Simulated assay, not measured.
Amino acid sequence: MSEQDNQAVHHPAVVAHHQSRAGDVQLRIADAITKFAGSMPFVYAHAVAFALWMLFFEANPWPTLTLVVSLEAIFLSAFVMIGQNRQAAFQQIKADHDFIEQELELKTNTELTRAIHAMTTELHSRLIEDRAEQ
């Protein structure tokens, strides 16, 4: 599938949003981390890592494990907030785009309605003239 075909499938606001995010390395890294952190492989990897840590690497793993898990939770919550901010920005872009499109549609419909009204008025006046001539 060509890039043009791929863009035709998506809403223009989505395409613009993805292009703007693709240009920023920090956002791409945050997106990749957020995508992985929200997946089942992330859960499985942590379950295995924590089990191995508790069983084989430390006799008393709780203090260090608690510190690591707390620090990880802090960073993951930051990535969740980044994801929420990204989603909010995307929703705003899409809402703005949709508003503009709806306004253009309203303007077009208004112009069509006026044109139909003018044509109908012209037709009625011609019918009246034709009846008057008979």
Rank of each mutant, 00 (worst) to 15 (best):
M1I: 09
M1L: 10
Q4F: 05
Q4L: 13
D5M: 07
N6M: 13
Q7S: 06
Q7G: 01
Q7A: 12
Q7P: 00
A8E: 15
H10E: 13
H11D: 15
H11L: 07
H11A: 08
V14I: 01
V15N: 02
Q19R: 09
Q19L: 10
S20Q: 12
R21W: 03
A22C: 10
A22S: 15
G23T: 09
D24E: 06
D24V: 10
Q26P: 02
L27Y: 01
I29C: 07
I29W: 08
A30R: 03
D31A: 09
D31W: 02
A32K: 12
A32C: 13
I33W: 01
I33C: 10
T34R: 03
K35A: 09
K35S: 07
G38D: 02
G38H: 02
P41G: 02
F42Y: 09
V43L: 14
V43K: 03
H46G: 11
H46Y: 12
A47T: 09
A49K: 15
L52F: 14
L52Q: 04
W53S: 07
W53K: 01
M54N: 02
M54Q: 02
L55G: 00
L55R: 11
L55W: 09
F56R: 01
E58L: 09
N60A: 11
N60W: 04
W62A: 07
W62F: 07
W62N: 05
W62C: 04
P63M: 05
P63S: 08
P63F: 05
T64V: 04
L65A: 13
T66N: 05
V68I: 11
V68W: 06
V69H: 01
S70E: 01
L71T: 00
E72F: 06
A73F: 14
A73R: 03
A73V: 08
I74E: 01
I74V: 15
F75L: 10
S77T: 15
A78L: 15
A78H: 12
A78G: 15
A78Q: 09
F79M: 14
V80S: 08
M81W: 06
I82R: 00
Q84F: 03
N85R: 10
Q87L: 08
A88L: 13
A89R: 12
Q92K: 14
Q92D: 13
Q92L: 14
Q92H: 12
I93A: 11
I93L: 11
K94Y: 06
H97P: 00
H97Q: 06
H97S: 12
F99N: 06
I100Y: 05
E101H: 03
E101S: 06
E101K: 05
L104E: 11
L104Q: 10
E105M: 06
K107L: 05
T108N: 04
T113K: 13
R114C: 02
A115V: 06
I116N: 14
I116C: 13
H117L: 07
H117N: 09
H117D: 14
A118D: 12
M119Q: 11
T120W: 03
T120L: 09
T121E: 08
E122A: 12
E122I: 01
L123I: 07
L123M: 13
H124C: 04
S125F: 01
R126A: 08
I128W: 00
I128S: 04
E129Y: 03
D130G: 07
D130M: 15
D130V: 10
R131P: 02
R131K: 14
R131F: 10
R131L: 14
E133V: 10
E133K: 15
Q134A: 13
